[in-house]
Amino acid sequence: MRARDLGVIVGRHPTGPNNAITDVDDVRVGHVTLHGEGPPDVHTGVTVVIPHAGIWSEPVFAGAHRLNGSGEMTGLEWIRESGELTTAIGLTNTHSVGVVRDALVDAQVEARGEGVYWSLPVVGETYDGLLNDINGHHVRAEHVHEALRVASGGPVEEGNVGGGTGMICHEFKGGIGTASRVTDVATGSYTVGVLVQANHGRRERLRVNGVAVGERIGPDRVPLPGAPARYEPGSGSIIVIVGTDAPLLPHQCTRLAQRAALAVANLGGTGEQYSGDLMLAFATGNRGIPPYAWDEDANVQRPEIALRMVAPQLMTRLFDLTIEATEEAILNAMVAATTLRGRNGMTAHALDHDLLQQALADTRIGENR
C-alpha cells in the first residue's frame, strides 16, 4: 500500500513508471531484513542503493547537506572535497555502520581486484534501539553482500524492510520509502528519484499537503510508541538519498540535497536536537568519469574530461521535483509500514489508512463550505 493507493497525491509533476528511485536508469535497490522474537528482539537490516552497475570503478558526481548532525553518514568528506561518489550507498542502524562500511570496501575490492587504491564508502544510519536489540550487532557482512546481490530495478519494497525495519516516523511506524518525478526538457526528459530511511519527527507536527494530520490523529486514536522516560520526542533521524539522470555538476547535486531538507520541513520535521537529518544527492548524467584520467592509446594522463551541465534556469524545476518526491517518499514509508512490537514491549503503531483519508477529507469538506 502506498500514498497514491489511498488517493493522496503530493505535488503536480508526474511520477516515473515505478514512482521509485529506480526510475533513474540503472539505479538498483536491495534489502535484507532481520526479524527475531526475543529476548533479544531483533528488528533491523540493511538497504543498499547502487547508483549504476559500474559504480565501483566509475564514480558519479554527488553532493551532501546536513539539516541536523546528530547522526552519521560516512564518506562525506571526500564527496565534499572531490564531488564524487565512488561506491554503493548503505543504510542501516546506528551501531552497524562499521560492519556495513567494511563490507562495502570488500565489495569494491571484489569488483575491481587488488590494487593501489582506497575506498571510502557512504553508509548512513538511523537509530532503531527502541524496537531492536541495537547493541547486539545483528547486521553482519554477509547481509550486506546479500543486499548487493539481490539489488534490482523496478518496484521497491517499502515500510518495515531493510535498514528501515525498526524505524519510527512522526511517532508512527516508519521505515523505507521512495518516490520519483519526471520532467520533459527540450532534449528529452529528466528523472529525479528519492529513497528515505525515515525515523524522525513528532506526531503533533505531521503535515500532509499542508493538513495537520498529526493533530487529527492524536494519541487517543493511534497510541504513541511509549518511549522511555527522558527520551525526547522527535529524536531519531532521516536519511534522504536523491538520484537523478540529469547531468549535474557537484555543486548542483549539493543544491538538490539542500532542497530535500525543505520536504522534511514541509511534513513537519524541524531537525530536532537529537535527530540526524542527512541528505545525499548523486547524478548519473555525466557518465564515464574515471577514477584516474588516462589516455590508453598515448599512455599519458588525460588533461581534460568532457562534461555536461544542466542550464541554471532548469534548476528550479529540479528543486520542485526533489521536494515533491521526498515528501511522497516519507509518506510512503509511513503508509507502507505495519505495526511492530519490539524490545521491552515497545510498540510502534502504523499510520491508520482510514484515519489519514478521513483527516484529509474533513479538510476538503471544510474548504468547500
Score class of each variant (00 low, 15 high):
S237C: 09
E125N: 00
D295Q: 11
V264K: 01
A350V: 01
Q273E: 15
V29T: 06
E232H: 14
G164T: 02
R66H: 15
P17Q: 10
A361M: 08
P247R: 11
V8G: 00
R4Q: 07
P233C: 04
V97M: 10
I289K: 11
G201E: 02
D41Q: 15
F282S: 03
V29N: 02
I323W: 07
R140C: 09
V116K: 15
P59E: 06
H43I: 15
T87W: 12
R12Y: 14
R28G: 01
E146M: 13
G201W: 02
T165I: 06
Y231T: 13
C253L: 01
L120Q: 13
P17L: 12
A333V: 00
V123N: 03
M315D: 07
M346Y: 12
R28H: 06
G226S: 04
T22E: 07
E171Q: 10
T92V: 13
A311C: 09
L206A: 08
A281C: 10
L278H: 01
R221C: 10
T178L: 13
G11Y: 13
E296C: 09
G285K: 07
T94R: 12
R369D: 15
G177R: 02
R341M: 14
V60Q: 03
V24N: 02
I217Y: 06
I330D: 00
D106V: 09
S82M: 13
A103V: 00
H137M: 12
E327M: 00
H95G: 11
